[in-house]
């Protein structure tokens, strides 16, 4: 098969995975909406009612932070296990390794189309409707997809090579959740140097801040601020997919150890 023949295959496998997962649950596709909703409500309950934190518009603020972060964490975690869960196919055919994390990443991305649509509807019903600037969401979503592919491919490599790395992935996601400004705003950080460092080295923090600027505040984005995130994402893709190609044979052995 040629390189480009794999893309329709990735699309088909991702769609079929979605179908098979939905079929395995009683509420099927309803979970696509229900799961992020339950997460948001849980966070809202903790921060608003137990800790009495958060502002007037805390629910929408939280939703716009948490839903994209859930997309990020679910995709990267699922991509990390992609080779191990496909050992049956890997045992039978010589398929390039980049296919498997991309199937899992695309599966989560297709699901996200529905979740994001509901998010947008909620934003509209909440009275935020600067539609003229919403086109800025497209480069933001593409940047997040690129970041997910980069980190997902690197984690696929690490987890396959050393299964212990799965524990690190969980810790990393927890750390990212606290450092990406989901239940607080980057602007709340008092130290301007620290604020700058987070925006420079945590792409998810910049992306989430960007979603809020567009959807809540109707602002025009300063795209230069996203260049570090773009550079980090491109670098991770280069390392991750490059290594998956270079160490193909080694990874096949690791899957069966």
């Amino acid at each position: 098969m040629t390189f480009f023949q794999y893309f329709p295959l990735i699309h088909l496998m991702a769609r079929m995975k979605l179908k098979s997962k939905a079929n395995a649950l009683v509420l099927s596709y309803v979970w696509w909406i229900l799961e992020p909703l339950l997460f948001v409500l849980m966070f809202y309950f903790v921060f608003k009612f137990l800790l009495h934190r958060g502002r007037e518009d805390f629910l929408i603020f939280l939703i716009i932070g948490k839903i994209p972060f859930l997309w990020f964490s679910k995709s990267v975690t699922s991509a990390a296990n992609a080779l191990i869960e496909n050992r049956g196919l890997i045992n039978q055919r010589a398929i390039p390794k980049f296919v498997f994390p991309l199937v899992n990443i695309n599966e989560a991305a297709y699901q996200q189309v529905v979740t994001f649509s509901v998010l947008m509807l909620y934003v509209i019903f909440s009275g935020y409707n600067d539609f003229g600037l919403w086109w800025q969401m497209i480069p933001l979503i593409l940047l997040q997809y690129l970041l997910i592919c980069g980190l997902g491919s690197c984690f696929t490599l690490f987890v396959t090579y050393l299964p212990d790395f799965r524990l690190i992935v969980q810790m990393f996601m927890m750390g990212m959740m606290f450092c990406s400004g989901i239940f607080w705003s980057i602007g709340d950080i008092a130290d301007p140097h620290l604020q700058k460092m987070i925006l420079l080295f945590n792409p998810m923090a910049v992306i989430i801040d960007g979603y809020r600027q567009v959807l809540m505040h109707g602002q025009v984005l300063n795209f230069l601020a996203f260049l570090p995130a773009l550079a980090i994402s491109l670098g991770l893709n280069f390392i991750g997919f490059g290594a998956l190609k270079k160490f193909d044979g080694l990874l096949t052995r690791r899957v069966f150890m």
Binding site: M1, P8, L9, M16, N23, A24, N91, Q92
Partner: peptide, 29 residues
């Protein structure tokens, strides 16, 4: 490689598994 009992996704139908198998052999959908 035909080695039995491998390479199937248990939650997908036989038809879907056969389709994936054909595409892995280089067929278009």
């Amino acid at each position: 490689l035909l080695a039995l009992g491998l390479g199937f996704n248990n939650n997908l139908s036989g038809r879907d598994n056969a389709l994936i198998s054909c595409m892995l052999n280089g067929y278009t959908q």
